[in-house]
Every structure is written in structure tokens, then in C-alpha cells.
Measured scan of single mutants.
Amino acid sequence: MEVRTIKVFTTVDNINLHTQVVDMSMTYGQQFGPTYLDGADVTKIKPHNSHEGKTFYVLPNDDTLRVEAFEYYHTTDPSFLGRYMSALNHTKKWKYPQVNGLTSIKWADNNCYLATALLTLQQIELKFNPPALQDAYYRARAGEAANFCALILAYCNKTVGELGDVRETMSYLFQHANLDSCKRVLNVVCKTCGQQQTTLKGVEAVMYMGTLSYEQFKKGVQIPCTCGKQATKYLVQQESPFVMMSAPPAQYELKHGTFTCASEYTGNYQCGHYKHITSKETLYCIDGALLTKSSEYKGPITDVFYKENSYTTTIK
């Protein structure tokens, strides 16, 4: 009895394709271990004539594949690729409408935090270190965002349907971005203890939790000093293409032309909904596939993004 075979390709990165001759009487799992086709788990399936010449994702289970996976995804987590594939199996079914010149995501599976993050990423200057993220990001900007969303979920250790947080998501993504040249110098002034300067680099240099107003941050924000008295913390120097200011959701007025974009969060910790506000020729609110415009805006804002380049204080 002759062994019926077909020729397929296996890959971990969709760049390096490895030619395989597979036995049609055995499952993919018996031949390769966990195997995925377009995100779908085909591990328990036997090869079919229609699979001839198709590319299958496999887990990096030998040295060659491990090197290829690390170079593309910059992670050695053995569960990463499987999590990416199972997320992709959902995100490829989502709709990605162009809204006001940006790629958004039609609401499904509690994905409003991903839509808000995706919209924000198209408006701030950011370059990702893992080629996987950078490639998928370019495709997302062009309207094909399924891979990018699935990668975000995998890097953030999230599953489809789980509630997510924009600030946490951005923080994970910033860790995989090139923020080497970003720098922030802060000064804390206390009447009792004097003053202390701190220099922050990388992710810490672009994120701040405690106030939404970048102007206020430049002037000074009140913080408790270690001595128990009130101290003032203010920005001395900022070198970065953008800054992200966050605070627990509270009524906040966004003035046209003073910011790049913002995240609105309605609801409580267990259950809520994100919308995205962007400042173009007027203010726009993007909620999944829905767009509304207004000249002014007041609502429960939790993150505001500002364009920056270089700032030095005039406070002496």
C-alpha cells in the first residue's frame, strides 16, 4: 500500500517557510505537534488534498525554529505562539472599519479597549522592536488589523473576551517599542525636605499616572512627601515624541487643539466601556464603527496623549 502524501510549508514567522512532505494517514499533531492554519487549530486533523502548498504555523520545537521565533517575536515564552494563534482565530472574524481616516474595530468580545489602543497607536510616533509587531502594525494602518490585535493580546497575556485596560495595554506595548531616546527629568520640591531631581528613561519617561493635564504637570502637581507634608512635583525636561497622561476616570474637559487623542471610560472596574476622542479640525468621538463630532467635550476621561518633541522648564 502506497503512502499518500502532500507537500506543505511549516513556519513560526510566515517569513521562513520549511518544506514538509506530510503523510495523509496521520494527523498534523502526530507529525508536527500543535499546528495552526489561519489561526485555526488543526492539530487533530489529517492532511487533505486542499492543504497542498498551504502554510501551517507550528510551535518552535527545534533550534532553527526557536531562533526564527525569537528573532521575529522577541520572546522565548513557549506558550506565546499558541496564544497568538488562538487569538487570531477570533480577531480574523472582527470587522476593521476605516473611521475618520483611522483603522478602528467594530465592537465584539469586549474589544473596546483594543480599538482605543489601536486608534491611539496610529496617532503617536512609535516604532516597535519585534519585527512581528512592526509588520502587523503597518498592515493594521492599511486596514488589516487582525494579526496586530492578536499579537497585542498575546504580548499582554490576554484572551479574547476578557476586559482590558488601555493604560495597561499601552504599557505592555511600550515595553516592546523603541523608547531608548526618551528621557524625563522631574523635580520634587518640599518646604521641609528641599528639592530632589529624578531622571527617568524609556517607558517611565512617557507615562504618568495622577493627572490628565500635561500643562498642569509642567506647572506642578501636589504629591505627598515622605515627611508627610505636601510637596510639588513638576516637569523639568521632556525628550520624547509623545507623552501619555493618565488618571482614574473623572469628568474632564478636553479643549480642541490642546491634545492629540484621549480615552474615555464609562462604567466601573468590573464592567465598563471605552471610547476614543481625537482632536482634528474639530473633536471626534470614535466608538467602534461609530463616529460623532463636537466642538467641545466633557466626560469621564482616563488617558490623554500629547505630541511632544523637546521641553525644558522655565521655572527657576
Rank of each mutant, 00 (worst) to 15 (best):
E2K: 15
E2Q: 10
T5N: 09
T5E: 10
I6L: 14
I6M: 12
K7W: 10
K7Y: 15
F9E: 10
F9M: 11
T10W: 08
T11K: 05
T11S: 15
V12H: 07
V12S: 11
D13P: 05
D13S: 06
I15L: 08
I15S: 08
N16G: 09
L17N: 13
H18W: 08
H18A: 12
T19L: 12
Q20L: 09
V22K: 07
M24N: 15
S25M: 09
Y28N: 04
Q30W: 11
Q31M: 15
F32E: 06
G33Y: 04
Y36L: 06
L37G: 09
D38I: 11
V42P: 04
K44N: 14
K44H: 12
K44P: 14
I45W: 15
I45P: 04
I45A: 13
H48D: 15
N49G: 08
N49Q: 07
S50A: 10
S50G: 13
E52K: 10
T55D: 05
T55C: 13
T55Y: 10
F56K: 04
F56A: 07
Y57G: 07
V58K: 10
N61P: 10
D62M: 10
T64F: 13
T64W: 12
T64A: 11
L65T: 14
R66H: 13
V67S: 15
E68D: 09
A69Q: 15
E71D: 10
Y72V: 09
Y73E: 02
H74M: 08
H74F: 06
T75N: 15
T75R: 15
T76I: 11
T76Q: 08
T76L: 13
D77E: 12
F80M: 05
F80I: 04
L81K: 06
G82M: 10
Y84Q: 04
M85L: 15
A87M: 06
L88G: 05
L88N: 03
T91S: 05
K92W: 05
K93D: 11
K93W: 08
K95G: 12
K95Y: 15
Y96F: 07
Y96D: 01
Q98C: 09
Q98V: 11
N100V: 09
G101Y: 05
G101A: 06
S104R: 03
A108H: 06
D109I: 01
N111F: 00
Y113K: 03
A115N: 05
A115I: 05
L118V: 08
L121K: 03
Q122Y: 01
Q122F: 04
E125T: 13
L126T: 04
K127H: 11
P130F: 02
L133V: 03
L133H: 01
D135M: 12
Y137Q: 07
Y137D: 04
A140M: 14
A142H: 14
G143D: 04
G143S: 05
G143N: 05
A145L: 03
A146L: 01
A146V: 05
C149F: 02
A150H: 00
L151G: 03
L151Q: 01
I152Y: 05
I152D: 03
I152S: 05
I152R: 01
L153V: 09
C156L: 07
N157H: 11
K158P: 00
K158V: 02
T159V: 12
T159N: 15
E162R: 03
L163G: 08
L163M: 09
D165Y: 03
V166L: 08
T169D: 02
M170W: 02
L173I: 11
H176G: 02
L179F: 15
D180K: 12
D180P: 02
D180Q: 12
C182K: 02
R184L: 01
R184C: 04
V185R: 07
V185A: 03
L186R: 02
N187G: 10
V188R: 14
V189H: 14
C190V: 02
C190S: 01
K191E: 14
C193E: 03
G194S: 05
Q195K: 11
Q195D: 12
Q196G: 07
Q196T: 14
Q196W: 15
T199L: 11
G202Q: 04
V203L: 10
E204G: 13
A205Y: 01
V206I: 10
M207I: 07
G210L: 01
T211Q: 10
L212E: 04
S213W: 03
S213H: 01
Y214V: 10
E215R: 06
K218V: 07
K219I: 11
G220I: 01
V221L: 12
T226M: 13
Q230H: 09
A231M: 05
T232Y: 09
Y234C: 08
V236L: 10
V236T: 07
Q237E: 15
Q237T: 14
E239K: 15
E239A: 07
S240D: 00
S240Q: 00
P241I: 00
M245S: 01
M245R: 02
S246G: 02
P248V: 10
P249S: 01
P249Q: 00
P249Y: 00
Y252V: 10
E253S: 09
E253A: 12
T258I: 04
F259D: 00
T260E: 15
T260A: 09
S263P: 02
E264N: 04
Y265Q: 02
T266M: 09
G267E: 09
C271G: 12
H273A: 01
H273W: 01
Y274D: 00
K275G: 00
H276Y: 06
I277H: 04
I277F: 03
I277G: 00
I277M: 04
T278V: 09
S279E: 01
E281Y: 01
E281D: 15
E281H: 05
T282E: 10
L283Q: 01
C285P: 00
I286T: 00
D287L: 01
G288R: 00
A289I: 07
L290W: 14
L291K: 06
T292Y: 14
T292G: 06
K293N: 12
S295D: 10
Y297S: 02
G299F: 00
P300E: 14
I301N: 00
N309K: 10
N309S: 07
N309M: 13
S310L: 12
T312M: 14
T313D: 15
T314P: 12
T314C: 05
T314Q: 12
I315L: 10
I315C: 15
K316A: 15
K316M: 07
